[in-house]
Amino acid sequence: MSRADVLAGPVPPAAPAAPAALPGAVARLLRSELRLVFGRRRNVALLSGLAAVPLLLGIVLYVAQGTALSGQGPGFVARVTGNGLFLVVAALFMCLPFLLPLTIGIASGDAIAGEASSGTLRYLLTLPVRRGRLLAVKAVATLVFVTAAVLAIALVALATGAVLFGVSDLTLLSGTTIPAGAGLARVAGVTAYVAASLTGLVAVGLFFSTLTEVPVGAMAATVVVAIVSAVLDTLPQLAVIHPGLLTHHWLDFAEMLRLEVDWGVLGQGLAVQAAWVAVFGALAWGRFATADVTS
């Protein structure tokens, strides 16, 4: 199913050669784009795979409960058996370094380069939508998919945690216990911050996607950026550039689990993401608006 097929119906047959915005065209394009992204079999498989992570983690922790190995593990894993809410945090914590960047790489790397490699990009460009708007539609669709991936992890983790370990009052990192309702809100905040802190990498992936006609190249480059950023973050010699690194503030979601949430810390993390979005969004636009599309 190509884009041209999907849009054949709604688009007026006499589409002008130089695309000019028609009312509703962008919304229609976005709707078809979302249908396409969520209809792709590999994307569905990706979502299911991510959703399986908390399920597996929960079952493993449930089985290991009461053995000598319970209460061990990095970050929040040790706390899951006490409170199912922590399974959401633990699952996101485990997916954040690699699985989520991989998901972003696949979704954003494919956005433009995928169309180019299958030869549908030039048909897409004949639509009555400007190139900048087309890029924006691609970006929004990718963001929606990435958000769906984070939500899939969080919701499956919440359900699994609630069934296996129950939901009780939440003990914050500061040792203070808050009611389960407030705890749920905190965990929702963690999920929202994690989703928002992935936007910078989406912009980077979209930029790579405009550079090449080989989707795998753009996907790999996006994942490499995330990993290189994480590696640079561990080098104390580079402490000066750490605050600006794409991945530096990813773990700041823990702020949501402290006694008094310092919104300044979270705001700084989001500001860095916004900066990456601005720079790489502009780069992607600069490249895509002027590129010769031959395929």
């Binding site: 929040f76 003990t171 040792g175 823990a254």
Partner: peptide, 27 residues
């Protein structure tokens, strides 16, 4: 006073004649 780690916290609380320390790592 709370010492912040990436995903952890070490708290020292003083309330009059009493004091507590809490480590989120080993609870």
């Amino acid at each position: 006073v709370a010492l912040l780690g990436d995903t952890s916290e070490y708290s020292v609380v003083r309330d009059g004649p009493e004091a507590w320390t809490y480590s989120s790592t080993d609870e």
